[in-house]
Design a protein around this nucleic acid. Structure first.
Lengths: 330, 330
DNA sequence: TTGAAAGCGGTACCAG
DNA sequence: CTGGTACCGCTTTCAA
């Protein structure tokens, strides 16, 4: 078996309490003793048993992370952020993937909540009722969703959307399509709202197409609808959908951006790999994860002041299509 | 606070022991009592504290998963497999990402090993010495790597590679390039070995180019080397590199497959999104993760018989380029 | 079949 | 500043 605190205590000729203190609250212990204990602990390769510690402190040192679909390159980046920030504070991350299924989501949260100090819930597709039911049990930070009284980190899409719309308008587009993502997605609603707010005063027509699955296949499926909508530009819920559009457009010999302009959201790695590369609204994915953990850890310390802690990070338009995105002459 | 076993015991008018038994070893308890206990437990929303249980049983119910780089779409799929299989057996997954840094890897394993029953280590870049040092502490299953005396699940690339080479030969290629991945990668060595074994008897020339980082940028960087190597076809260590090649080739107006054929490995989602889509050696990513957990859980029960449990899953060539891949007339 | 009691490995409180 | 002791929530002998 591995070394316990008792082994260290015996070897150092002190009590277990002193070992515990030397390691977790070094200031409360004589410098000399502490040093000796720490050295012996190192020699013995002692590592505290977090389960045992958690039992008494009530802290597990774990945080739960639940994401919608790891196959969407958006999420791995968030996971990296979460995991990186967690590690900095010596927390471990329990990860689970719901596969876009809200039922699974509820179950996972239930299963996780006893083994973590808090949960980071990314792009939850749960109903608000369910959500509120679960957030009562464990400290939860929402990513990409806002629900009253629940701490959340969201991305301010409004300004980015505005930039995208302005960009399209500057290029002379008058009629813009939006390929909607899942109705249960808060981001989707938010983006739609932003689009309305940006297009209406500018005198642009906005045509909603969809909703489709937030996947490549979803984009492929939406492409023909887009073409029949009589728009010269289209903004997709996310890059995967945008890539699907691009793919189908190419198959149908619809030139991008010659015949139609396409803008995605997320700035996943692959949006710059296609040719012509995809103009997209970059989301600070890793940062989103980091800030989420930041907030969670802070809440864990401050014992949740008002119950409505909020953080916002901002998105930014990345214009990539080297060829420009003017509407076709008609 | 949440309900403990004592709350349930009191409410049911039995002892904590009985509650414990009713829930974990139902057979040892009177049917009537058991039913009552179970019902009350459900009513109270009782969930066992795994940390407390782990303290006594020595089992945490967690498995650690360490991957090289979550940004490579290969890994999220493996994670999904691991996590899915783990959940089926009521295990949770602690995930960590090393960012291709072996030093981080060692640290992570050390940090994780006390809180998990076993570790799934995917595509480890550690030296064999370090690896052996760590695998002593905790039950470890290697994915995509083989080291004597350590349980492992690997993908049999040999047959897939053979298919790929045969495919190229059938199309008339005589000189094939290989863009190597990290030297520390077992898969890289394995693929190279497979390539040599397949090309030599067939009388094909094999030119090694690289090693480069297993990323899009790595592929971009390798593209010119490939062009100067005088090959008519190239196989890349992975799809990301292959996509990088494709990108750079396009920028230089090198036609694929007109001027050069490209084959990748992994079959990541995006290899079918580009045009022309990438021919690739599909790796059973999710299955790899599942089988890894399978093996780990089995080893956890059987107390490790010989110490060299092995599993293999197989890869398969996916031919995608609709336009064919004949070498250019010279 | 059930209950009492002893820990698992730590931490925290209280004396000394 | 240090040691003794109780106890976190659960499982597991050992008796009854």
């Amino acid at each position: 078996m591995v070394a316990t605190i008792y082994d260290v205590a015996r070897a150092a000729g002190v009590s277990p309490s002193t070992v515990s203190r030397s390691l977790s609250v070094p200031d409360l212990v004589n410098a000399e003793t502490r040093l000796r204990v720490q050295q012996i602990a190192a020699e013995l390769g002692y590592r505290p048993n977090r389960a045992a510690r958690g039992l008494i402190t009530g802290r597990t040192g774990n945080i739960g992370l639940i994401v919608t679909d790891l196959s969407n390159p958006f999420f791995p980046e968030v996971v990296k952020g979460v995991q990186g920030r967690a590690r900095e504070s010596d927390y471990s991350v329990l990860l689970a993937d719901t596969g876009e299924d809200p039922t699974v989501e509820v179950g996972l949260i239930r299963a996780l909540c006893k083994q973590v100090d808090g949960i980071v819930l990314c792009s939850s597709r749960m109903s608000e009722t369910d959500l509120r039911g679960v957030t009562g049990d464990t400290l939860t930070v929402l990513l990409n969703r806002r629900v009253s009284k629940v701490p959340a980190v969201t991305i301010d899409n409004a300004d980015g959307i505005r930039q995208a719309v302005a960009h399209l308008q500057a290029l002379g587009h008058h009629r813009v399509g939006y390929v909607a993502g899942p109705r249960t997605s808060w981001s989707n609603r938010e983006r739609l709202r932003g689009l309305r707010a940006a297009t209406t005063p500018a005198g642009l027509d906005l045509v909603e197409v969809g909703a489709v699955a937030p996947t490549f296949a979803g984009g492929v499926a939406a492409a023909d609808l887009v073409l029949s909508a009589g728009v010269t530009a289209v903004i997709a819920y996310n890059d995967l959908i945008a890539l699907g559009l691009l793919n189908r457009f190419r198959a149908k010999n619809v030139s991008v951006p010659g015949d139609i302009s396409v803008i995605g959201v997320d700035d996943i790695m692959f949006s710059e790999m296609v040719s012509p590369s995809l103009t997209t609204l970059a989301q600070p994915k890793e940062q989103l994860g980091r800030v989420g953990v930041d907030l969670l850890l802070q809440l864990l310390q401050d014992a949740d002041p008002s119950g409505a802690a909020r953080r916002t990070v901002t998105s930014q338009l990345v214009i990539r299509s080297s060829t420009g995105t003017a509407p076709p002459a008609r």
